[in-house]
Design a protein around this nucleic acid. Structure first.
Lengths: 191, 191
DNA sequence: GCAGGAATTTGATAAATGTCAAATAAAATT
DNA sequence: AATTTTATTTGACATTTATCAAATTCCTGC
């Protein structure tokens, strides 16, 4: 999961003006500092918490046949959790790894689900987030379907210019669905 | 958009036991027969209706640089509309084309959104559908990211064995992100 | 059943990307 | 600063997939 949409941020900001909501939320949500290399959740465990990135960078990946495959990079204002694991109580297919020291707000789904029922605006935010995530995924499928490796790399750079400074090439390559060597050659040619 | 998940179907079936909901819904939802080749919605127009496929087959595609690119095949029990266009009132990025004579339930978002507010169970179904769709998309990204053309073809066949009987190879090929010729060769080799 | 058009297959070749191995370069550790 | 480890680049070659062209097969309307 990953989300980043202006309207949602505004709606949330407005919602937190409500003191009752604010108090109820921060009674159960906890802001924590995670160090580079720390793992928020490991592949195979059930995802029981929702992670809101306040600042920093998180990498989503899974291990398959010994290979480490990156499925997303998540930045400030993104939300990290597994929809599948959290909603169906199944093992989480991915691991969430903190790439650089990050401030992350952690809230248990047990609490969040209760708050969603209690405060309809949070339910609304949830739904809007799902919609935004689906739209983001649609774009990603499109890009995988019809763009060459070079184009995909350029799109990534355009969207997240910082990523190149913060993440390993191996991770970026697997995110793009290409090998490390191919990515290196693409970079060598046209920056 | 596309969705197909057992729990949602069951929840809906239960919800429609409620006579008030049933009546309110079928006052505005209309079941129509569409003939092969008909278009539900054209790329560029705002998506104002939600299409529930009762029976038949719908292809989702868009035109880009003169090329026709398929992004989904939708079957009975799938729901067809553009999340992006419907929620943000933006031009729909895709066209929905009926591939074979189909029975499709049409409901205007104007009505559906009102019903979602009126009957919380419908709001619940909406959210679950979004979740299911996001999970479906995640699988699709994964498949595009790490599977060869042959593997993707085999996955498609396994999931939707009928598709090969109903859709053009050109459409299937663009859905898989490969050329018509490559798909033909894959088929020639290992069924 | 036949003609004409559309869909699919096949062939030859080019381009993109992957694989394996080695060489540098950069970063972390002592 | 020197050493060790890790990350990235480069090279040679294999594989996959695309492209263009032609041949064949399959539909469709007559």
């Amino acid at each position: 999961m990953k989300q980043q949409e202006g309207e949602i941020a505004r709606l949330l900001a407005a919602a937190f003006q409500d003191e009752a909501l604010y108090n109820a939320y921060y009674q159960v949500a906890e802001e924590r500092v995670f160090r580079r290399g720390e793992v928020l959740l490991e592949q195979g465990k059930v995802c029981r918490h929702c992670y809101n990135i306040i600042s920093g960078l998180v990498r989503v990946f899974y291990l398959k046949d010994g290979k480490d495959i990156t499925t997303a990079f998540c930045f400030a204002d993104d939300t990290v959790f597994s929809i599948e694991s959290a909603t169906r109580q199944t093992p989480c297919p991915e691991t969430y790894e903190v790439l650089e020291d990050s401030v992350i707000e952690v809230i248990a789904f047990e609490d969040l689900n209760r708050l969603r029922q209690e405060f309809p605006v949070l339910e609304k935010v949830w739904t809007l987030s799902m919609e935004a995530y689906a739209i983001w995924l649609e774009e990603r499928v499109y890009s995988m379907q019809f763009c060459s490796a070079r184009e995909r790399y350029q799109q990534l750079l355009q969207k997240y210019p910082e990523i190149i400074l913060q993440a390993r090439l191996t991770h970026i390559a697997s995110y793009l669905g290409i090998t490390l060597e191919t990515l290196s050659r693409i970079r060598a040619q046209a920056g």
